[in-house]
Design a protein around this nucleic acid. Sequence first.
DNA 1: AATCATCTTGACGTGCACGTCAACGCAGAC
DNA 2: GTCTGCGTTGACGTGCACGTCAAGATGATT
Lengths: 146, 146
Amino acid sequence: MMGRTYSIRQLTKEMGVTSRTLRHYEDEGLLTPERQGLARIYSQRDRARLLLILRGRRVGFSLAEIREILDLYNSQDHGVAQFQHSRKKFIERIAALEAQRKDIDESIAELKLAVSRAENFLAEHHAEQNPVRVKTTSYSVMPAAE
Amino acid sequence: MMGRTYSIRQLTKEMGVTSRTLRHYEDEGLLTPERQGLARIYSQRDRARLLLILRGRRVGFSLAEIREILDLYNSQDHGVAQFQHSRKKFIERIAALEAQRKDIDESIAELKLAVSRAENFLAEHHAEQNPVRVKTTSYSVMPAAE
DNA sequence: AATCATCTTGACGTGCACGTCAACGCAGAC
DNA sequence: GTCTGCGTTGACGTGCACGTCAAGATGATT
């Protein structure tokens, strides 16, 4: 059972990346597509790896970090020591991601405050015939200019 | 009331960045410390902005994006149109951050699966005198190699 | 006065993640 | 047979976020 395969064009269109990007990932050892003559031919597995790569990129991993994670996924057939090492690395990554999520949540909270501040202002100044009296609290996270 | 001020060294030590970084942020218009002669002197407000900058960096914003957000925070004294524009931009940022959080949550979930897979393996192979019979389910998100 | 730490301004260098050519291979359509 | 489309391999270029010097200014200390 060979499964579906993909040309480089198909993959780039589906994933929204350029062929240069795919070849770059191959240079970096993140993808290893088969060949038909010169042409690359990507398997389902390559596609799955690419999805992981792109999500890793979106969460801020470097290609080197992504490669390390992918290697950990696929090197888990070399005994107890390997598994212990992988487990430790995974746990480290999880902790880093949770810290990052905290930063994101805080950023979201602050931006939401900024939005309601803007909406408050707009509610006040848009009301020509119905002056909504909303208290213009200073929601700003930034200290006032000196 | 002037508030506390900081030398460049104090800020770099507190924030864990180099002075080059602070000067770079100044070149990019993210910070505008006062001067005493030549020496930069950072105010509370500069420090607060720096905290926002560093968190923005941690969540993956470029310096240009961070500058735009900071500008939006501080340009909200130019009428209704400005506020509407700011509100829209903030909402866009929030949506992007929420998408990013989703990616992070998915990554965490996958890494946790990988951890339990490793722990399962270790439980099986560590058990010499007490053979723990745990089903070695294939948790892998990656399709098997072809 | 000389030393020292701390700061300054250029300005070139670097690592990463690709972009952007140029030149060429190869299979099928006309 | 040549044209078109899709693919290939170098290899140099680019934008970003700083790193890393060199050379000098400034104020406090000995």
